[in-house]
């Protein structure tokens, strides 16, 4: 039996509202809020990046796992905003946790799917007996070009999962994948901001792959939407995951606990993993959870978990996602946001 042993998240305290961004670019905030299903998004502090968010999320995961960092056989960090172009984020994370030196480390990239890449690899690695425990982190401090639609959603956050074969809080029942070459979103080398295919990111990209993976895993498991207690779909905005869930036959009560994007934004590699963490914050033993990620380029990973008794014992050992998301927020204006995101720099 393999599954999740501990989980943890980190969300920056800063937020910017859709109205604040729209005001600067002369855009119509109500139509953006309606069209994207977003109200606000998280903004990393100037001293936060993918490495810091990953470490702080992973420390929370260790608290719930109740294992020593030296017991981690692998550390994988999935992100599209690694602090270095060349120097693995995983080395910083492993060292900060105290997992070095006997730890296999890699940085993963697959647009917004890099977080579940790590989860997929660690689950199967641990299942095969290579390591007793392994850590998978999905984290990003994503950027959208000023004035672009992405600027309203590109947010920051991290979710970390420790995988093992004992002390489980959620048992893995099935995995599946759905992947094709679909150029809906990309960033070329040496460019700062990504580009995207506008409406092309919808039906042939997000919806095709998310529903492909969801239908594939449900077919493999012999399960129907009504057999799940909860479902989480990648959240590039507040609208797509709800549309996908409805199209597949899920009900609001199944997706609501894991839907964070309306007030968090799209944390890219952290997006659906943070939705899973928020769902684990409310799940009861025996509840079944469907997780489907999506990464542009494009592909989806799908997982089915069943919560165990231990989940309720360890839940309170680290901050809940909703606590990090809803409490002690600091709202900033566009000028501060531009400074924090280094869109403007002070002359030295």
């Amino acid at each position: 039996m393999v599954g999740i042993v501990g989980y943890g998240t980190q969300i920056p305290r800063y937020r910017i509202r859709v109205e604040e961004i729209a005001k600067v670019w002369g855009a119509d905030a109500p139509s953006y809020k309606r069209g994207l299903g977003l109200n606000e998004k998280s903004v990393p502090a100037p001293d936060e990046d993918t490495a810091t968010l990953s470490v702080n999320a992973a420390r929370n995961a260790l608290l719930r796992a109740g294992i020593l960092p030296q017991e981690l056989g692998a550390v994988y960090v999935g992100s599209e905003s690694h602090p270095y172009a060349v120097k693995p984020t995983g080395t910083i994370v492993s060292e900060a946790l105290g997992a070095c030196p006997h730890v296999h480390t890699a940085d993963l990239e697959f647009a917004c799917k890099a977080g579940t890449e790590g989860l997929f690899i660690t689950l199967h690695e641990v299942k095969s007996g290579v390591f007793p425990y392994a850590l998978a982190v999905g984290a990003d401090t994503s950027q959208g070009a000023p004035g672009d639609a992405l600027e309203y959603s590109a947010a920051a956050g991290a979710a970390a999962f420790i995988v093992g074969t004992d002390r489980l809080i959620a048992e893995l029942l099935h995995t599946d994948v759905f992947m094709t070459d679909t150029p809906d979103f990309w960033r070329r080398e040496y460019t700062h901001y990504p580009e995207h295919g506008g409406r092309f990111t919808g039906a042939p990209a997000y919806f095709k792959h998310v529903s492909g993976a969801a239908l594939g895993i449900m077919d493999k498991a012999g399960m129907k939407p009504q057999d799940f207690t909860y479902c989480i779909f990648h959240q590039p905005n507040g609208k797509f995951p709800v549309q996908a869930a409805k199209q597949l036959g899920f009900q609001e009560a199944q997706w609501l606990p894991g839907l964070l994007s309306p007030t968090l934004g799209n944390t890219y590699s952290g997006s659906s993993p943070m939705g899973l963490a928020a769902t684990l914050d409310v799940a009861k033993p025996g509840d079944t959870i469907l997780l489907v990620s999506y990464g542009s380029g494009a592909g989806s990973d799908a997982f089915i978990f069943r919560a165990t008794e231990r989940l309720t014992e360890v839940r309170g050992m680290a901050p809940l996602v909703r606590t990090q998301l809803d409490e002690h927020r600091v709202f900033i204006e566009y000028g501060t946001y531009a400074k924090f995101r280094r869109k403007i720099l002070k002359a030295e």
């Binding site: 100037p46 001293d47 490495a51 810091t52 420390r59 602090p83 901050p319 606590t323 409490e327």
Partner: peptide, 24 residues
């Protein structure tokens, strides 16, 4: 765990502990 400073645009990024008020 936070960024403390970086050695210009091309140097290393230095990380370390910082304090934050414990608000949970």
């Amino acid at each position: 765990f936070r960024r403390v400073r970086e050695e210009g645009k091309t140097g290393i990024i230095m990380y370390a502990y910082k304090f934050v008020p414990d608000v949970g």
